[in-house]
């Protein structure tokens, strides 16, 4: 039996060693993963459930930046010691980032095993990084204004909707940019037919323009507009909480993809952890949790959602086939000209 005094001495000695050694040991074991992520309901679920579980499993801390703008902050920080390890943005910003070498060009199943289970759109040639979720951009509309459910993008041009249709300030909103390309496809030779798109945009006037999707949601809820370009999540997420007669329609020409993309910065000091995080975000249980929280369509084919989500989100190969992915590389290269042109069109 060890005497009490000896035990105390040993204890004190261990404590002293621990005190001296602790900082370096802690430093070596507890890595920090710096990521960007969305706010709102998504951010709540991330902070309450997803990130704590990840930290526990991978014995790390996650510093999640929810404050825009992510890209300028990343641009300013050193490429060898970037301010983020994982960048979460929509697809078009990833294209901007990759041009400057701020994110990796391609991520495969070798680094992120769960990529083997994603739908093709998630890693298509229109994507830099990996898509973890997508929304479908279509038409939101009031069901109490005597409108039939729109079946075509052209329904937004219905003269009855003059002044009661909603769109975006194209220079600042990617839904507006995607819609512009869709106009080229619907009224012209394809997504890159800008002349047809400009003409069609002109025909949509008078139109109420906003810069955030949140504002479009509010305009539909308050009946300030009767129909507007919006992503499915922006309508479905009010389900239950909102009694307003607003619904979402997927036009027959196809819906536009609004992808949530993750990517790793080449200079990251914790690349393994960064890939592990992306892999984690693609796990079926994590995908299900987030998809049902914010009405995003999961990129992982194996996810099984509850019936009410399954009915509305893109969860089968057939439904996924209606997604049209804009070519952001092409668009970003012409962005300044397009901005100048559409500003002129929408001002007049």
């Amino acid at each position: 039996m060890i005497s009490r005094r000896k035990a105390l001495r040993t204890g004190a000695g261990l404590a002293a060693i621990a005190a001296v050694g602790a900082p370096s040991i802690l430093h070596a074991q507890t890595k920090t993963l710096k990521i960007t992520t969305w706010g709102g309901k998504w951010g709540e679920v991330m902070k309450a459930t997803v990130l704590p579980a990840f930290e526990k499993e991978f014995k790390c801390t996650v510093s999640a930046d929810q404050a825009f703008p992510f890209l300028p902050k990343l641009q300013v920080s050193s490429k060898n010691d970037p301010i983020y390890d994982v960048l979460h943005t929509n697809s078009n910003e990833q294209w901007n980032a990759v041009v400057e070498g701020l994110v990796m060009a391609k991520i495969t199943a070798k680094e992120v095993p769960n990529i083997a289970d994603v739908y093709p759109y998630a890693v298509s040639d229109k994507i830099v990084g990996v898509t973890i979720f997508t929304s479908a951009i279509g038409l939101g509309f009031r069901t109490d204004k005597g409108l039939t459910k729109p079946t075509s993008w052209k329904d937004l041009a219905d003269p009855k909707l003059a002044g009661a249709r909603g769109g975006y300030l194209i220079p600042v909103n990617s839904l507006g940019q995607a819609h512009l390309m869709m106009l080229g496809k619907v009224y012209g030779k394809g997504l890159t037919d800008l002349d047809a798109a400009y003409k069609a945009l002109e025909a949509l006037k008078p139109i109420k323009l906003v810069d955030f999707t949140g504002q479009m949601e509010k305009m539909l809820l308050s009946a300030e507009v009767s129909m507007g370009v919006i992503h499915d999540s922006g309508v479905y997420r009010y389900e239950g909480a909102n009694m307003q007669p607003v619904d979402f329609a997927s036009p027959s020409e196809g819906v536009l993809a609004l992808e949530q993309v993750l990517n790793v910065t080449p200079g990251s000091k914790v690349k393994e952890l960064a890939f592990a995080y992306i892999d984690y975000m693609l796990r079926p249980d994590v995908q299900k949790l987030l998809a049902e929280a914010v009405w995003y369509s999961p990129a992982n084919k194996k996810v099984k959602l509850e019936a009410k989500y399954d009915a509305k989100l893109l969860t089968t190969p057939e439904k996924v086939a209606t997604l049209i992915q804009p070519d952001w590389k092409w668009y970003n290269a012409r962005r300044e000209d397009i901005d100048a042109r559409v500003t002129k069109i929408l001002k007049g």
Binding site: G39, G40, D65, A67, F68, K73, G214, Q215, K218
Partner: peptide
């Protein structure tokens, strides 16, 4: 805007980001 850190955001920054998701 650029100087706040995660979990150390001032009210105007939090409001701005909140607005993008929940108006």
């Amino acid at each position: 805007l650029f100087l706040v850190v995660p979990k150390g955001e001032t009210l105007p920054v939090v409001l701005f980001n909140y607005m993008k998701f929940d108006l």
